[in-house]
């Protein structure tokens, strides 16, 4: 998949430090339109920071982010959402005292290609809720939903903003095996609708079956890139995940 098709998102020489810690260190990569890109790396390797830099939740110290050829490095997150970048959060963050319907409705009213008419937006939001099996919960406050429901709600809400690029931060964490396979089928349907996905995920089986391409980070730097099966078998990738000793043991 790498190299095919136009690039939807380009990160160029991105850096971000927190105090003395370089969370993202001169990172460059591209996301190709239509693909599912896996963003891998051990804990603390900078994956979530990369998401925050793309979505605009954090300002970059240096480097550029381009979306559809447009420089968005200095744009606020809400503007990027209206351009077509939507995200979910690693720890789900529903708007707790709003109903499931209203959570989706706000995104429908403010996202890309938004419906400004309240009635249309509400109907479209109800359709999205039923697509995610949440019709029965439309009038339930988001804080009263189960974790699996909140995870689905968060994806429904992101889709309500009609993104071209969807960033999913550990969407499978805490889900049961059945819920995981349902979620994977859902992500493939999202891809089939023409939405490009970038996904941070620790579930290696899911990454293997879902992603067209993966990039691997370590200490904020890119250390590997390619097809998932091939990248995951490289010794330097195994090493950052499991440590040098285990590499020796494996050999």
């Amino acid at each position: 998949m790498s190299g095919d098709g136009p690039e939807l998102l380009e990160a160029e020489d991105l850096s971000k430090s927190f105090g003395g810690l370089r969370a993202v260190d001169r990172l460059s990569f591209a996301v190709v339109e239509g693909e599912i890109l896996g963003l891998l790396g051990p804990n603390g390797s900078g994956k979530t920071t990369v998401f925050n830099l793309i979505a605009g939740a954090l300002p970059a110290d240096r480097g550029r982010v381009r979306f559809s050829g447009r420089d968005i490095t200095r744009e606020p997150p809400s503007f990027r959402t209206r351009l077509g970048i939507a995200r979910t959060f690693q720890l789900v963050r529903p708007l707790p005292n709003l109903t499931a319907l209203d959570n989706v409705l706000v995104a429908r009213l403010y996202g890309r290609g938004r419906s400004t008419a309240l009635r249309t937006a509400r109907d479209e939001s109800l359709d999205l809720l039923s697509l995610f099996g949440l019709s029965q919960k439309a009038t339930t406050s988001a804080h009263a939903l189960t974790l699996a429901e909140r995870k689905r709600l968060e994806i429904a809400r992101a889709l309500a903003a009609r993104p071209q690029l969807l960033l999913l931060d550990e969407p499978l964490g805490g889900l049961t095996t059945t819920e995981v396979s349902a979620a994977l089928a859902q992500f493939r349907r999202i891809q089939a609708e023409g939405i490009t996905l970038v996904i941070v995920e620790h579930n290696v089986h899911a990454v293997r079956s879902l992603c067209d391409r993966v990039i691997v980070l370590n200490s904020g730097r890119l250390i590997a890139e390619g097809r998932p099966a091939e990248v995951l078998s490289r010794s330097e990738v195994i090493e950052v995940y499991l440590g040098k000793a285990s590499r020796a043991a494996l050999q």
Partner: peptide, 12 residues
């Protein structure tokens, strides 16, 4: 409810 989430769904 959550200013960061509001931004992430397009609300300035």
């Amino acid at each position: 409810e959550d200013a960061d989430v509001a931004e992430a769904i397009g609300v300035h």
